[in-house]
Design a protein around this nucleic acid. Sequence first.
DNA 1: TTGAAAGCGCTAACAT
DNA 2: ATGTTAGCGCTTTCAA
Lengths: 333, 333
Amino acid sequence: MKKTIYDVAREANVSIATVSKVINNTGRIGEKTRQKVFQVMKELDYQPSLVASALTGKSTYSIGLLIPDLANPFFAELARSIEDRGHELGYSIVMCSTDYNPEKESKYITLLKQKSVDGIILASGFQNDAVIRDLLHLKIPIAVLARDVSTVSVDTVTVDDFIGGYNATRYLLELGHKKIGTIQLDLEVGRERIRGYQHALQENGVEYDGKLVLFSPSSVEGGKQMGLKLLHSPDRPTAVFAGNDIVAIGVIQAVRELGLSVPDDVSIVGYDNTILAAISNPPLTTVAQPFHDMGRQVMDLLIQEIKGEKKGKKRVVMLPELCVRESTGKIKK
Amino acid sequence: MKKTIYDVAREANVSIATVSKVINNTGRIGEKTRQKVFQVMKELDYQPSLVASALTGKSTYSIGLLIPDLANPFFAELARSIEDRGHELGYSIVMCSTDYNPEKESKYITLLKQKSVDGIILASGFQNDAVIRDLLHLKIPIAVLARDVSTVSVDTVTVDDFIGGYNATRYLLELGHKKIGTIQLDLEVGRERIRGYQHALQENGVEYDGKLVLFSPSSVEGGKQMGLKLLHSPDRPTAVFAGNDIVAIGVIQAVRELGLSVPDDVSIVGYDNTILAAISNPPLTTVAQPFHDMGRQVMDLLIQEIKGEKKGKKRVVMLPELCVRESTGKIKK
DNA sequence: TTGAAAGCGCTAACAT
DNA sequence: ATGTTAGCGCTTTCAA
């Protein structure tokens, strides 16, 4: 049978109130009593039930994490850093992969509410602010990662996608490319990167061509299909800026399938700097997101919010950094 | 304020017992009453507290997942399939990455016990059976994934590592390789694969050479270092069987660093068939583990155990399958 | 310094 | 068919 606080109290000849106090280090307890209680707790291998203490109004010490897809290396890394920071701070993580699916999103939110998690991290391309507002209204602490929720006041950690798109594109322009295609995810982040892309083009006097801008799902196959579409025209682009490393790898495959070479015929830039970028062939030039810091930051923000250590909401913006490898090269005349 | 069962009861002019009964669909309730209660629940946006119902002796509907490292694509895929199956069955997953670290293992186990999870999935190179015995003794349902716990009676899902090692090695032998090195993880699975490797060698009359067997941590860097070590001798192996795809990629890098080519000079076989194998250069011949089924199976086993739908423990063994790509080739005379 | 007792929100006998 | 009530294991006043 699992031991309860009553077992400890009886064995130590004190009341459960006393035991509770030594566990939580509250109230004033005599040193001898404290020792005795500790000893009995050890003897009985007693561990307080978090469920019971949660019911009494304390925290559950668990926080929900909504993330699009654990199987995507970028999100897996992110989840890992969030998990680590959470555990460091005494919280455990309940994982929910949403697949960018609004239905799953709200289903999981409901679930997490029922479980009385202390807070929720939204690391997803959340479709509707309504859910966020609802959470906020219910006073459930939340923190949003990697997405600007401009219309709502929440704690957010974002990486500047405009800059990311801008830097990637500018780098390609510097290499002499003029016809630069881009294949992004059909999400807010994708559109923001496209804005950066446009800005870079414009700044360099290159005319924007809508036909060079495509959307793709986050998969190798998707990248390949869109890559083929983009590269199939006789007047094909000499460089492609992809929405993430997975898509970029699809584009590489497309290039190869057309009998062309990376980076000789087509330069490619990815996004995220996952392990995929490091090991792909050729190694991928990519826009690095500081996932380690990102995870840590959201978690810290959320915990501060939970503990009420913070006045008002905070918005942390991090900067992406171009990581140059071998999938990009100067344009050949 | 969060609504409670009392709010619903009052609003619907019934007792809390009645509300509880319609929620859980137990006892006999008049149709009109039922409708009324449902309606009020909706109006109030009432969601029963799982914490409270858990305290009353019911399940928490959460299960703990101990896994070495979410950031490793293989485990991420596994975690994803476990999560999906869990959610399908109404359970949520509490993630714990252990880094193969026994201290973290027991720390997380303690945590999960306090949270009264309904069960725990051990998908780790668990170092000591003691923890498992303890859990078993406490009657906490567990299921073990990807590791044979031969001395203890638990539900397990494993992939036959002996066969995996055997198949990989035999394939290399069939290609004409005689000097075959192997770099495995220093874990039970690794040793089992080495046994398969030895068996294949012996069966083909190739003498076993201990110097060709190395251990490495699960990292590209580790694989590269061990790869260099293995390949540095003048009498270097013509093929390497690696412990997982990540290590295999490290070996590829080692081969390149020595100015050699894959597969012309050195054939390489990985393990796991993660996305890394598909996108590496050259695409990796690898031993595929059916992670999708694996995750589903452990979860099913665990839930059956939790629900007591099963007499005795079950041991499910799945078979790995060699997936041939371009990192292996016939030996050159 | 310690203990008695009232909940937290819910379930499950047992009554009615 | 519905309600009363006694817990579940813990925290927290309030007394002693």
